[in-house]
Amino acid sequence: MSTDQPGTTVLLAGGSGLIGSALVHDLESRGTRVRRLVRREASGENEVSWSPQDGVLPDSAFDGVGSVVVLSGAGVGDKRWNTARKRELLRSRTSTTSLIARRMAELGGPQRLLTASAVGYYGSRGDAELVETDAPGEGFLADLCQAWEAAAQPARDAGIAVATARTGLVLTPEGGALGKLLPLLKLGLAGPMGGGKQWWPWISLTDEIRALVHLIGSDVTGPVNLTAPEPLRNAELTRVLAKALNRPATVPVPAFALRIVLGEFSSDLLASQRVLPAALLADGFEFRHPRLAPVAEEIIAG
């Protein structure tokens, strides 16, 4: 099915976040009905109340649904990591994905499930080019992503087509990493992090949403890297964005300073992941923003 015709009603978990809300807007602009799962009393016919912690998800949520998309999960960089926060990061992903996968298996459908994951799956791998068939890496985020992806196994076992979107660094001024970096870039206070040699697999928000819509209407299964075909080193990515703002990007941020401010999460910013979108390209997806330099101003402007 083409990118412009994603299908019938889409059931979405995680529709209030940055990516989820943009996906809802895009799908509805195409004439696709989106039914959102909400953890409060439903408001209107396009919402259904559910409770992942209590295992509550009514059969009616799946009525007329062609595809299910799960984007739920607490923000990895929103709070400093401790034991409790790590448990929440894991629980918020696996409990939602697992419940939906089990209910789909019990009901025998819908026959398409798209779940979220992240390039953190690969750990820090230096200059090695990474595609979907590469083994997982080491560290908390790699372990988190493996558990996250495994939570959809009941749907796979039931013969449901499951695709997993391993997303990279989503560039948009509306939030995420760029939303936090942009004020510093505008002041000329941003530069290479921890030396800046680590590869950062990025994707514009526009292409992130287009890729998700593509996967909703595709037959591809398994992991799919949602990253631009030209990953950049941290220093180069920062330089390109700063140039679009007519600002310097020469103030280095030492690794020890990141660890002091961010704690263990700094390992994610310092990780080197040269991830390539092999499966997405093989499935015929065409990026609108394959390279950062020509579109940096557009991405910064939102």
Rank of each mutant, 00 (worst) to 15 (best):
S2W: 13
Q5W: 12
V24C: 13
D26C: 14
S29G: 12
G44A: 00
E47P: 10
S49H: 12
Q53M: 15
D54T: 12
P58C: 07
S60L: 09
S60M: 07
D63T: 12
G64T: 08
G64R: 00
A74G: 11
D78F: 07
K79T: 13
R80K: 08
R80A: 04
N82R: 08
T83C: 11
R85Y: 15
S95I: 10
T96Q: 01
S98R: 05
M104H: 05
Q111R: 15
L114F: 04
D127S: 14
D134L: 06
G139N: 06
A142N: 05
A151P: 07
A151T: 11
A158I: 00
V162K: 02
R166T: 03
G168I: 01
L169Y: 00
A177M: 13
A190T: 07
P192E: 01
L205C: 13
E208S: 13
R210I: 10
A211Y: 04
G222H: 11
G222A: 09
T227W: 06
A235R: 05
A235L: 08
E236W: 00
L237F: 07
L237C: 02
V240G: 05
R247H: 06
P248L: 03
A249S: 11
V251R: 02
P252R: 07
I260P: 05
D268C: 00
L269W: 01
S272Y: 02
L276W: 11
P277A: 11
L281R: 14
E298L: 11
A301R: 15
